[in-house]
Design a protein around this nucleic acid. Sequence first.
DNA 1: AAGTGGTCTAGACCACGAT
DNA 2: TCGTGGTCTAGACCACTTG
Lengths: 261, 261
Amino acid sequence: MSNSSSGFFGDGPVALPPGGPLYLQLKRWIEDAVHRGDINPGDALPSERDLATKVDVSRVTVRKAVLQLVQEGVLIQKHGSGTFVAPRTQRVEQSLSHLTSFTEDMARRGMSVRAEWLDRGRYEPSPEETVALGLSAGELVARIARLRLTGDTPLAIERASLSVSVLPEPEAVVDSLYRHLDRSGNRPVRALQRIRAANLGEADARLLQVPAGSAGLHIERLSYLASGRVIEFTRSVYRGDTYDFVAELRIGAPTPGGARA
Amino acid sequence: MSNSSSGFFGDGPVALPPGGPLYLQLKRWIEDAVHRGDINPGDALPSERDLATKVDVSRVTVRKAVLQLVQEGVLIQKHGSGTFVAPRTQRVEQSLSHLTSFTEDMARRGMSVRAEWLDRGRYEPSPEETVALGLSAGELVARIARLRLTGDTPLAIERASLSVSVLPEPEAVVDSLYRHLDRSGNRPVRALQRIRAANLGEADARLLQVPAGSAGLHIERLSYLASGRVIEFTRSVYRGDTYDFVAELRIGAPTPGGARA
DNA sequence: AAGTGGTCTAGACCACGAT
DNA sequence: TCGTGGTCTAGACCACTTG
């Protein structure tokens, strides 16, 4: 159905804001329409072909503009269905100064979260794991990988590695990892996290149901026992559009030695 | 000069790893070559046209593969010059549990950092600023915006807002903002930061000298005086490829009331 | 001036979703 | 089946950097 004359994209030829490449003009035009509320979350945009005709550019140029808006989370594209203004997603917050279980944390917020297992097993450790966990030669590593979701939207991928001496049966972890560790007397008391932003690669993007290249948070965490021993090395990838991390800072000297693995 | 037969991209037609769209095959092929060390940081890739001929795809397809690798920080493109394997960039670390001055922090690491002023002045506050800083009606806001650089590489954009009652002369801030506040007896003792990942928009990307759509860290910070009053509201944008934030977590209950602005 | 990346086009076919 | 987004092509011109 060619969008006859309804709503924002109604009538004939349109005037793009001037300046710079066509695809940026078009991008600004759409972006402004969204921010002004001329088109609302959930609304469908005209098809790429219609848009191309309307603003008199090629479809390739339309796609270039739309791609950037999709990457910035303004639009959503569904193959075979259409292009839509992204719904306002509620951001999830997580404290950066207190070690809390993901499961417990979300339950406290009244959010229903679930996890899908991606992997649980014993493996030859990677060099990185060997160093991080201080494994001795020949020792295996237990890996558990989960996809965290709330409802149907994926939130994060979590890949945890532990020495098999701490977690001999990774298959036995059924819910919270910390709860499991707790039962064997291995609850960590302290952790160091490294956080950085990166564009998501193919595989992670697919798991998180966002387009490749979207911004994500990569977090590396080392958890320590009271004894000072590292028991958990976790690499997580969070969707940039659904997560806020909150940290409380206090004045003082920089973290004393030991902040590096 | 058409890359005759030197190095990795030497001889005739090549075999792309199978599976999926052409541009992803090509992307994997280049990515693998970089990770295996077949091509090293700083090395130039063949021109897009040459690559297209060699692997027998169109130039558009080559660009699509290269674009993703540029966004992921694997490659760097220089208009008019060529495409190169990205140099290993040293990541900067910043603690998330201690409030330190950016300037002091970097100096301690022996890194030469400088800042360029983007803006300093008094303005009508935005609604967001009014709420965050608790401004009374008619009160102006002092804004200072800086671009942080080390050598020639931009690290971050910092936009700070303060009540004019705290900073009546924003033009008078010459180096560290905290040093300046300190002199007037207004040093914050505590701050809350919200961190999230987002793809950088046009303007910020240009300032940080990365392609639009690259991942960046958006950080919002509220700094508090000992009295509990908010004195600073700062929004910063960090390059995803040069920054690591480090947080130390301790076990315990979630941050008690007050974590929200 | 030559070579590079940056933009843009018109048209084609495929894969998926709704009908 | 039809309309949508996803991929791909061959060719053109512009803007920039470098010898």
